[in-house]
């Protein structure tokens, strides 16, 4: 049967920075084709398609809180597969190979991680579950 796609509304303007992304204006309606854990969602509109940041979209049918996981304060072990230097105060700076714990997997692709006493946001696409081959 036909695949029913969820419609989302853009809450802000988004300027694309690569050819696979899709620019948005606040209020644009898009259908979501694929939701990536990285926080990039593949969307289509009337005559365009491309990747869009999940945090710029809100569901037309009310908040889909069911998709958002609860924080797990015990933490899930992950390894940093790519270093990142914090840009904002609430982000973490980590080096490749460091072991951290993920305590909250957010749909926008910025996960809350813990390293010793410090916590902050880190891009999920630069993390890999401990013990998994890359």
């Amino acid at each position: 049967g036909p695949i029913v796609l969820q419609t989302y509304r853009s809450i802000a303007d988004f300027a694309k920075s690569s050819t696979t992304e899709m620019a948005l204006q606040a209020g644009d309606l898009v259908d979501v084709v694929e939701k990536g854990e990285s926080g990039w969602w593949f969307c289509q509109a009337k005559n365009k398609r491309g990747w869009v940041p999940a945090s710029y979209l809100e569901p037309m049918d009310g908040p889909d809180e069911s998709e958002e996981q609860e924080p797990n304060y015990e933490g899930e072990p992950f390894v940093v597969i790519r270093g990142y230097t914090a840009v904002e105060d609430d982000e973490m700076t980590l080096q490749e190979g460091e072991a951290i714990e993920v305590i909250h997997k957010l749909l926008d692709g910025w996960w809350v991680v813990r390293k010793e006493e410090a916590t902050g946001y880190y891009p999920s696409m630069y993390l890999q579950k401990s013990g998994q081959a890359q």
Partner: peptide, 22 residues
């Protein structure tokens, strides 16, 4: 086939989204 997603992390949520967070 769906193109590969961008290799850069997505931007942090816009101010509009942050205001909605509790």
């Amino acid at each position: 086939t769906i193109k590969q997603p961008p290799t850069q992390p997505p931007p942090r949520p816009p101010a509009e989204a942050r205001r909605k967070q509790p």
